[in-house]
């Protein structure tokens, strides 16, 4: 579904991504770990096409199409959806935006995510951290993207709501189907790994200094990080070529 080749990205004059390679197939969920500033969010922003991130080298192929030069809205229309880590307050009412972007019925997700009381408010205006995250997932539910980019979906969210969010994410990922029949995929950035207790990942990667330095089964990667920290962890994992 997604192929990233030697991606180099500059933001605010500084090279953040220094040659990222990544392949994602339908039905897969990729978790990305890494210290602050290692380039995790930049990777998602570059896949989405947010304009403050300049791609200086490499290519992004989505469903066989080179999207490296495409504007952000075209990527969204092709089926890429981003749940922002820190979404801004936007002077548009949430229900108006949902109405505009929704594909099919979203009422059940409004209730599942406890967002009914927020529909007539401007997006994120006065929302708590957890409400913002639920709002992001609700918007993704409306977009129904093939590839979900989830930037720390659980940060600032209490345990109960992590479960609520995860349930919706699993539904959007068609987790109820057999692996081979799933057409959706996701990249999840997580610091804590809590979300992976509910949304099972196929593979985990560690990013360090703008590169994916190692990859492996999520449980092993997490155990290693907890035990040895990022630096040491990389040494004991198999490095992906």
């Amino acid at each position: 579904m997604l192929e990233i080749e030697n991606l180099k990205v500059v933001a605010e004059g500084k090279e953040i991504l220094k040659g990222v390679n990544l392949k994602i197939k339908e039905g897969e969920v990729h978790a990305i770990f890494g210290p602050n500033g290692s380039g995790k969010s930049t990777l998602l922003a570059a896949i989405m096409g947010l304009p403050s991130y300049k791609i200086t080298e490499g290519r992004i192929i989505f469903r066989g199409k080179d999207i490296t030069g495409l504007p952000v809205w075209e990527r969204a229309k092709l089926g890429i959806g981003l749940a922002f880590q820190s979404p801004p307050e936007v002077s548009v009412r949430l229900d108006k935006l949902l109405e505009r972007i929704k594909k099919g019925e979203i009422e059940k997700y409004v209730d599942a995510l406890n967002m009914r009381n927020y529909l007539e408010r401007n997006i994120n205006a006065g929302f708590s951290g957890g409400e913002r995250k639920r709002g992001e997932i609700l918007q993704l539910a409306a977009q129904k993207p093939d590839l979900m980019l989830l930037d720390e979906p659980e940060s600032g969210v209490d345990m109960e709501n992590i479960y609520v969010i995860s349930k919706v994410i699993n539904e959007l990922l068609e987790k109820e189907k057999r692996i081979k029949e799933r057409k959706k995929a996701a990249i999840v950035i997580t610091h804590t790994g809590y979300i992976l207790d509910f949304v099972s990942a196929s593979i985990a990667h560690i990013m360090m200094d703008g590169k994916i330095v190692c990859s492996g089964p999520p449980a092993d990667v997490m155990r290693n990080i907890k035990k040895n920290g990022y630096e040491k962890c990389v040494e004991c994992m198999e490095v992906e070529e």
Partner: peptide
């Protein structure tokens, strides 16, 4: 705000008029 809306698949001019 503009890019937030555009990331939802809304073209620039429409995102501006929504704002």
């Amino acid at each position: 705000e503009l890019y937030y809306l555009m990331a939802r698949g809304i073209v620039e001019d429409e995102a501006k008029s929504l704002l």
